[in-house]
């Protein structure tokens, strides 16, 4: 085991050099800072707490409420609306962070139609803060019947939402 550990470190070091890792945030490390410990244990965000004595409080932009002051991330909310805007919107519930589209038939293929539901799950701009579920139906024997949608479609839409949210955040931060 001891002999293999250096090789494992070397492998990870190589991956780091290739820039293939996920950024680890400060709150993923342990601490003996009493302020940080108390804030973590009582459900507060150390990035939100305290008094800004210089600069702009961007944490509130990152984790701020969406429309109507609800507890979803504003960037994720806007990015999801924009990403799904090619489909007709059936309902958007900012209080619960739920967006539901109506059925949409691609012009290129009138034999199938799609419907999407998106859930904004986080106040933070996180990769796991949005979930998209796509439903598909095909025209068969004179009626619409359910058909499985590609699993990759959900992930692709989520990735597009995340990319757009990141752009929106960058636009705000650059002001």
């Amino acid at each position: 085991m001891r002999a293999r550990l250096p090789w494992l470190f070397l492998l990870l070091l190589t991956l780091a050099a290739c820039g293939m890792g996920r950024e680890v945030q400060r709150d993923e490390y342990g601490t003996d800072d009493p302020r940080e410990l108390i804030l973590r244990q009582t459900g507060a965000n150390p990035r939100d707490a305290g008094l800004i004595i210089f600069g702009v409080d961007r944490s509130r932009q990152d984790g701020g409420a969406g429309p109507g002051g609800v507890a979803v991330n504003a960037f994720l909310w806007r990015a999801t609306l924009e990403t799904l805007s090619f489909m007709p919107l059936a309902s958007a519930d900012p209080a619960g962070g739920v967006i539901i589209t109506d059925w949409y038939t691609p012009p290129a293929n009138p034999q199938e139609r799609f419907k999407a539901q998106a859930y904004i799950l986080s106040r933070q701009l996180r990769s796991d803060g949005v979930r998209v579920q796509v439903f598909r139906q095909v025209w068969r024997n004179g009626q619409w019947v359910d058909a499985p949608a590609s699993a990759a479609t959900n992930s692709e839409l989520e990735d597009r939402v995340l990319a757009r949210a990141r752009e929106l955040r960058g636009m705000v931060a650059s002001r």
Binding site: I52, S127, R166, S174
Partner: peptide, 24 residues
């Protein structure tokens, strides 16, 4: 996420921000 962040590292999409000093 690695793909996302890796591409972000290459793409100069980050905006420079002035430091924030927080007292707590």
């Amino acid at each position: 996420v690695a793909v996302g962040f890796a591409s972000a590292a290459i793409t100069p999409a980050e905006a420079q921000t002035a430091p924030t000093v927080r007292i707590g």
